[in-house]
Nucleic acid binder design. Structure first.
Lengths: 168, 168
DNA sequence: CTCCTATGTTGACAGTGTCAAGCTGTGGTG
DNA sequence: CACCACAGCTTGACACTGTCAACATAGGAG
């Protein structure tokens, strides 16, 4: 996790983490099946951090509608502040395409719980519930973390678009 | 490009493209500065394909509002149908974070041109113009390509959310 | 004709993921 | 208590990769 704060997951080698832990180059194989095994653990921990950040933001919001907006802002902030952690969560070589993806469950649960709040669920078309909200903040977070526009722009666009997607 | 259709950019080695071209392992260095040089060219070509797909969709739409929705659908479709090409466009190790990113210019131009259409620009808050539309379809495309939900769900959510972001 | 440049070649080096084989201390079972 | 299984670590090896350096060759510009 310490290395992940400094460099992207793709540039972290098993041998490097072995050196950082001051052990032999093969010791990691007794803790992770694979290089992918290591990345999966990093992805799991990063996801836990992400979900915690979102949950805290939601809980501090005064009402369900602003909870959605605050949660979206927290998601975007996480992507910008921990870009390598965010990337490894969604790394297609880590998050296997076939299976339902153990790693994603916490986030999806949190989202569904948030959006099933009766007062806001009523205003969401079924198709744009979790899908629309997740897609919007994910795209804004990703592009913002990559530097394609500023955090301020992303947060403003997120708040406005989410407001329009909620019950008017 | 042929290899990119089969496997992610991260798994394409310079030596492998050399073998595919039936040429010595070092020949690529006379055409690309670096491994990153190769990926940058792949990203540029992929971006051209993406922009073409979006432009075609826009041009076939009957009015500006449906052009936005059709363009978004084309963007999402490209992400799902050419996942490795889509990924390499936005690969953070390729698309350098500091500089304004040569590769992105065509897409941004296209988006700005589309959204500056007077009849729709009037209904968009400034913050959620290019940023909001791009963020939405990018997130939906990325998550859909990764298999987190179906193409149908993504297209439905995209159409609905875009409709709400346009002038009511 | 001469020479430069583009392209290609072989050879080498360090770094990596991964496998195989062997060491060691610690805990639990007989 | 003796014993042993085993988790954790080690060294050693292999194939593969990106990259550098030095050398070859061909074809066009002067």
């Amino acid at each position: 996790m310490q290395l992940l704060a400094e460099k992207p997951a793709g540039e972290i080698s098993l041998r490097e983490v072995a050196r950082a832990a001051d052990v032999s180059h093969n010791a990691p194989y007794h803790h992770f099946s694979d290089r992918r095994g290591l990345l999966k653990v990093l992805a799991g921990r990063s996801m836990a951090d992400l979900v915690t950040a979102v949950r805290v933001a939601i809980e501090q919001a005064p009402d369900p509608a602003s909870a959605v907006i605050a949660g979206g802002a927290a998601y975007i902030r996480y992507a910008v502040e921990h870009p390598h952690g965010f990337d490894v969560i969604y790394d297609p070589t880590v998050c296997i395409p076939g299976e339902p993806s153990e790693t994603m469950a916490p986030l999806i649960d949190e989202l569904e719980q948030l959006l099933s709040e009766p007062s806001i669920a009523a205003g969401l078309e079924s198709a744009s519930g979790v899908t629309g909200v997740w897609g919007l903040v994910h795209g804004l977070g990703t592009l913002c973390a990559a530097g394609h526009f500023s955090l301020d722009d992303a947060l403003a666009a997120s708040a406005e678009a989410l407001a329009r997607m909620l019950p008017r």
